[in-house]
């Protein structure tokens, strides 16, 4: 069975599993579930699996996608039932289906974030934060393959809202997932570089949804 897609969440203690380790973890889970992943041919065969958007270590997600192929036929409904029992804490199967679109059609990403300030009051900072991210252009220095480069991240932010609660600032943003990719950590880098007084002492992000270029939920 080719063209299968698994949607899963990665939260709690599992957020510290790196991308490379996740590939291994998934392969082992499939074996435990008695599901034989299809392998590539050749000298060094590897399981034919791929993940949509590699997730940074420490970031949670409710919308991870993994494409895979199975050697044998099995009803689609069976796959999540079997996987559920064999996944490590924090990784949960949401659904398994036949994929219709390719990962390259993913364009936007919903992220929730939380900014924590140790010494400063979140409510004082809130309006300034809103101001900062309403600029038309936010040019930052970022690492690229060939050293340091400049990027305007404003065009990668489709929308961003902030509110305050429990002494911290919560943000909701729709950012560009691909072409260009905006790592949510860069929202914090932008503050550190351009308005350090607004930079949080600790920030944490969660992916909640992915969309195509027309803002349809991507599946």
């Amino acid at each position: 069975m080719d063209n299968l897609r698994l949607r899963f969440s990665k939260t709690g203690r599992a957020v510290y599993i790196s991308h490379l380790d996740l590939m291994r973890t998934m392969q082992r889970a499939f074996l435990r579930a008695g599901l034989q992943l299809k392998y590539s041919e050749g000298f060094n065969p590897h399981a034919q699996i791929s993940f949509a958007l590699p997730l940074s270590v420490g970031m949670a997600s409710y919308c991870e996608l993994m494409d895979f192929k199975l050697n044998d036929y099995i009803s689609l409904a069976q796959i999540p039932l079997r996987l559920k029992k064999v996944l490590p804490e924090g990784i949960s199967v949401l659904e398994v289906y036949e994929r219709e679109q390719k990962f390259k059609n993913i364009k936007w990403l919903d992220v929730d974030g939380s900014f924590e300030y140790d010494e400063r009051s979140a409510s004082d900072i809130l309006p300034e934060l809103m101001d900062f991210f309403s600029r038309d252009s936010i040019v930052i220095q970022k690492k690229t393959k060939s050293g340091m480069g400049e990027a305007d991240i404003a065009e990668s932010i489709r929308s961003i809202t902030f509110d305050e609660g429990d002494g911290r600032i919560r943000l909701k943003a729709i950012i560009s997932a691909q072409d260009p990719t905006l790592n949510p950590e860069l929202l914090v880098s932008a503050l550190k570089q351009l308005s350090p007084q607004l930079a949080p002492d600790f920030a944490i992000f969660t992916r909640t949804q992915i969309y195509d270029s027309e803002m349809n939920v991507f599946r």
Partner: peptide, 25 residues
């Protein structure tokens, strides 16, 4: 998880070795 730990884990090498939660624990 300890809130202080949440802040530390992203800073250290290979944080997954400090969290537990593995299969069959």
């Amino acid at each position: 998880m300890d809130k202080r730990l949440l802040r530390i884990l992203p800073k250290v090498q290979k944080p997954a070795r400090y969290t537990g939660g593995e299969y069959n624990q």
